[in-house]
Amino acid sequence: MDKNINFRMKVLVVDDFATMRKIVRNILKQIGFDNLVEAEDGQAALQVLKNENIGLVVTDWNMPNMTGLELLEKIRTDPQTAKLPVLMVTAEGLKENVVAAVKAGVNNYVVKPFTAEILQEKIEQIFKKLAG
């Protein structure tokens, strides 16, 4: 377990597909996070961010109304959340997306399907960097 990660922090899972939210939640729980909230789209996610103290956002890329990238951009332009760690979930074969997200300031990304180990590694990378 990584000492840089506070497993008590609240993690926000954003995905329009309920099954996918469940899967991500399960994996996050497996890693050790149990303080989880979810949102079914970007708009709802922003609302949650306004009201709650979120430590990490795990968002899908491909969502109706507001893409993960647009959500990320909104998070980065709001001074309240500009530094909030964001992890993007994406699908293989969509490389332009990943590069665009990284340029927009995503902290890390993970390609579906992923295992708990992979996600944990990505999250550890994020917080190691933030701590360093």
Binding site: L12, V37, Q47
Partner: peptide, 20 residues
């Protein structure tokens, strides 16, 4: 083709917020 919202709505807290 907006997927039927009610069924997909979250069990999570987000859904219970404001506009949704």
């Amino acid at each position: 083709a907006a997927p039927a919202a009610p069924a997909a709505a979250a069990e999570g807290k987000a859904a219970s917020d404001a506009q949704l």
